[in-house]
């Protein structure tokens, strides 16, 4: 089999060429306007990103918008990414979450939707080989969440998945704002420590 050195620009962005690159390298390439690198990052994180956005906005079309806007933000601001301030995966998922929350806060209808916690939303089975790692990771975070006191877990889940502000959350749960703040703060710190102990600090498979 003869391999030819193909000009990258002649190909439709496809992540195959970049799929083994570490997140940092992909982001550095994205900062140089490498479309294939962006495609590779999308392929690595779009499943999680879309799941997250859908969970927050509860509408497929709005979820797609949030994911698209977030990855466009990755594309446009990759040069400003600071590796001493965040892991690439955290940075990307933070952008996705921020967009989803911004979308849902513009939508009044979420206020009528009952709040749910993770225990009630567990319907999507993941089966294919490439998704096993995601499933493992999901299980690890779920186990970590279970180790938190109920009030702290509830505060984290409702803040993160329902896109509520701390004031809205206090109102919805009929507890003082200061209580919500301290539940979120104590809960997130504890979650951080549990996850660090469990070793959840590797990026998704770079295969």
């Amino acid at each position: 089999m003869n391999l030819r050195v193909l000009p990258a620009a002649a190909r439709r962005p496809a992540s195959r060429d970049h799929s083994g690159f570490p997140d940092e390298a992909l982001l550095a390439l994205v900062a140089r306007e490498d479309e294939e690198a962006l495609a590779a990052l999308y392929d690595r994180y779009s499943r999680v990103a879309y799941g997250l956005a859908l969970r927050v906005v509860r509408d497929p079309a709005l979820a797609e918008d949030a994911v698209q806007e977030a990855f466009l933000a990755v594309w446009r601001s990759a040069a400003g990414f600071r590796s001493d301030r965040a892991k690439p995966s955290t940075w990307i998922l933070t952008l996705v979450h921020r967009r989803a929350v911004d979308v849902v806060r513009r939508e009044e209808r979420r206020r009528a939707v009952p709040l749910e916690t993770t225990e009630q939303l567990d319907a999507y089975g993941l089966a294919t080989d490439e998704e096993i790692e995601l499933t493992d990771r999901r299980r690890l975070v779920q186990e970590a969440l279970r180790q938190l006191p109920d009030e702290q877990r509830e505060a984290l889940e409702l803040a993160y998945y329902a896109g509520l502000t701390q004031s809205e959350l206090a109102e919805r749960l009929s507890v003082p704002l200061g209580t919500i703040k301290s539940r979120m703060f104590t809960g997130l710190r504890r979650l951080r420590d549990i996850l660090a102990e469990a070793g959840l600090d590797e990026p998704l498979a770079e295969l």
């Binding site: 779009s46 990103a49 997250l52 892991k87 933070t94 993770t118 999507y124 995601l134 998945y161 996850l195």
Partner: peptide
Amino acid sequence: DAAAALAYVAEGPAP
């Protein structure tokens, strides 16, 4: 990092 880890629990269908 801890907040972003919550994203993995929100698994849904593929985009």
